[in-house]
Amino acid sequence: MGYLRNAWYVGALSREVNEQPLGRVILDESLVFFRAADGSPVAVADRCPHRFVPLSLGKVKHGELECGYHGLRFGRDGICIANPHGNNAIPRGANLRHYPALERYGFIWIWTGDIERADESRMPVFPFLDSPDQFTAVHGYLPVAGNYQLVVDNLLDLSHVEFLHPMFSQAEGVAGHRTEFFQDGDVVVANRWKPNVPLQGLAGHMFWTSPSTRSDARSNMRWSAPGYLNFDLGATEVGATVEEGICLPNAHLVTPETEFKSHYFWSIARNRLLDDEAMSARLHDVVDRIFRTEDGPIIEAQQRSMGLTSDLMSLHPVTLDPDIPAMRARRILARRIEEEHQASGRKDLGRASAVA
Rank of each mutant, 00 (worst) to 15 (best):
334 A>G: 06
274 L>P: 07
302 Q>K: 13
322 P>V: 06
307 G>H: 13
329 A>V: 08
290 I>P: 06
301 A>M: 14
270 R>I: 02
293 T>W: 02
288 D>H: 13
318 V>S: 05
272 R>Q: 12
318 V>P: 01
318 V>G: 03
323 D>L: 09
341 H>D: 02
279 M>I: 07
269 A>R: 01
332 I>L: 10
294 E>Y: 04
278 A>D: 11
294 E>V: 00
266 W>T: 00
339 E>R: 14
274 L>W: 10
316 H>W: 05
335 R>D: 15
275 D>F: 13
280 S>L: 02
270 R>W: 08
312 L>A: 02
312 L>S: 02
286 V>P: 09
309 T>D: 06
289 R>T: 13
294 E>C: 01
271 N>S: 03
323 D>S: 06
327 M>E: 09
296 G>V: 06
277 E>K: 15
265 F>D: 00
291 F>Y: 15
342 Q>R: 15
302 Q>W: 11
340 E>V: 09
316 H>M: 09
273 L>H: 10
320 L>V: 10
303 Q>K: 12
305 S>Q: 13
317 P>V: 00
300 E>G: 07
278 A>N: 14
303 Q>R: 12
316 H>S: 04
291 F>W: 13
288 D>A: 05
340 E>R: 08
275 D>T: 11
312 L>Y: 14
309 T>P: 01
322 P>M: 09
273 L>Q: 11
267 S>Y: 03
312 L>M: 14
268 I>Y: 09
304 R>E: 06
310 S>H: 11
322 P>T: 05
310 S>W: 06
295 D>A: 05
337 I>N: 04
299 I>N: 12
315 L>V: 10
340 E>L: 04
274 L>E: 10
291 F>V: 07
